[in-house]
């Protein structure tokens, strides 16, 4: 019998347990989707706040962004999981997944939003205000529709990173693809070869189309603006 890590019988075992990987994929998708929604909501609110002239608002958003960008996601997730219960706050693992990954990427999204909005000439906001638009209304009607084109590629990259980063949840028994893969490869006949390859391929299939679309979009945008 071939004992190599990629021997055919090991793939057969993986095939027999494919429901585990499908479950992992489902959970990763669900957590990613909800975390992305949260990241976008937080990112847009903070991103807009950081472009305001209100110093307190700016300070708060800055502090948030610096905190979440400069501490590892793994530490934040561990904190949510093990430290918050000491304060009487106990989220489910899945909620921590959405919350942890969402809050973390919200910081990055807010930087994308801030940069996007700042890239629009100030005259656009002035024109809207001179017509009698409130600042927020001007942002929604005039600024964001222009900035979104600039923001879309980096936002998509954030989505890709977010999907990959859900794997951090494997350290807290997150139930997602990485956790179930880890569990599968360290039990039974220890088929880490097929296990990690398949997990890698699944992550790739989730992320590559997004990254590809983002790159195509960016190339089109460049071609348009340089025409």
């Amino acid at each position: 019998m071939d004992m190599g890590p990629f021997a055919a019988w090991r793939w057969q075992r993986l095939f027999n347990d494919s429901n585990i990987f499908i479950l992992g994929l489902k959970n990763t998708l669900l957590i990613s989707f909800l975390a992305l929604l949260l990241a976008l909501v937080i990112g847009f609110i903070l991103g807009l706040a950081s472009t305001s002239s209100n110093k307190a608002l700016k300070g708060v958003t800055r502090a948030y962004v610096e905190f979440f960008q400069n501490t590892p996601l793994a530490v934040q997730v561990f904190f949510f999981y093990n430290a918050l219960p000491a304060l009487g706050i106990k989220f489910s693992v899945r909620a921590i997944g959405v919350l942890g990954v969402g809050l973390y990427h919200g910081a990055y999204v807010s930087e994308v939003v801030r940069a996007g909005i700042n890239s629009i000439p100030v005259g656009q906001l002035e024109a809207a205000k001179s017509q009698g638009f409130q600042t927020l209304q001007a942002l929604v009607v005039v600024i964001i529709p222009q900035a979104i084109k600039i923001m879309l590629p980096p936002l998509t990259n954030q989505a890709v990173n977010l999907i990959k980063n859900t794997s951090v949840l494997s350290t807290i028994a997150g139930g997602e693809l990485m956790y179930l893969t880890n569990k599968w490869v360290s039990s039974g006949t220890l088929n880490y070869g097929p296990g990690f390859v398949v997990a890698g391929v699944i992550y790739f299939l989730l992320c590559f189309p997004l990254a590809y679309l983002a790159r195509k979009y960016e190339e089109n945008l460049k071609a348009k603006t340089t025409r």
Binding site: F78, Y81, N82, A83, L84, P85, A86, K90, V93, S170, T171, I172, A173, Y179, N182, K183
Partner: peptide, 18 residues
């Protein structure tokens, strides 16, 4: 069951009531 990579992680989860 919830599975963890290392024993200290399980102990931390026990201490926090996870």
């Amino acid at each position: 069951f919830e599975a963890f990579s290392t024993y200290p992680e399980i102990k931390a989860a026990l201490d926090s009531g996870r």
